[in-house]
């Protein structure tokens, strides 16, 4: 791994918040003292179009500015992308992929072109609707990325996310607890 850290690729659809999740992950890792990079790949942006976002998290200075072609972790925010986007392209064999789906790992694996690394599924819809009353896949997928990558300590993550949400939702404090619940429920669901 070039940056002596971890490289993450996010696949989502425009409007689902994959870019925001990548920027939030950069933000929260920065607070633990890491060198971070979080950036989206822009095309003709429109709601629902496939989009990609990237993270590099490292102990060392990050100088590479290209997209990420051999990620350690892939996060798929929308499972319908599996039929149209080659989400495991370049994904390291000793890496992992997380897919937002109510399906089990065994049901999803046949759709992953024989990928041999670790596969995780997260039912972000159920988690989000239970916790927030609405479907925002962002928070569950972010928590899953942290739990699977072990890029930072989970307790530190929870503490930092509370601060971050308090800032972000200063005018909507009623959604803070729901988002926090979505994070911890994801940890529980993953058993990690």
């Amino acid at each position: 791994m070039r940056t002596n850290g971890i490289e993450i690729r996010w696949h989502g659809r425009g409007g689902q918040g994959a870019k925001t999740a990548a920027l939030l992950l950069a933000d929260v890792c920065f607070k633990t003292g890491a060198n971070v990079q979080g950036f989206p790949e822009y095309g003709p942006e429109r709601m629902g179009a496939p989009i990609t976002a990237f993270n590099r998290i490292s102990k060392e200075e990050i100088r590479v500015h290209s997209n990420i072609y051999t990620p350690d972790l892939v996060v798929v925010v929308d499972e319908t992308l599996l039929s149209s986007v080659d989400v495991t392209a370049g994904l390291k064999e000793d890496g992992a992929i997380i897919i937002n789906t109510p399906k089990s790992v065994d049901e999803i694996k046949p759709l992953l072109k024989g990928y041999k690394g670790d596969v995780y599924t997260v039912d972000a819809r159920t988690i989000s609707v239970n916790a927030l009353g609405k479907y925002f896949p962002n928070s569950p997928m972010l928590a899953a990325a942290v739990a699977v990558s072990e890029v930072m300590d989970k307790e530190a993550f929870i503490t930092e996310m509370r601060t971050s949400y308090q800032h972000k939702f200063a005018k909507k404090p009623e959604v803070i607890e729901g988002n926090m619940k979505a994070l911890t429920d994801t940890f529980t669901a993953l058993g990690k």
């Binding site: 990079q37 979080g38 950036f39 822009y42």
Partner: peptide, 12 residues
Amino acid sequence: QDGFITSHAVQN
């Protein structure tokens, strides 16, 4: 500065 590559990339 380079559009998107640095303008939209969050870094330290």
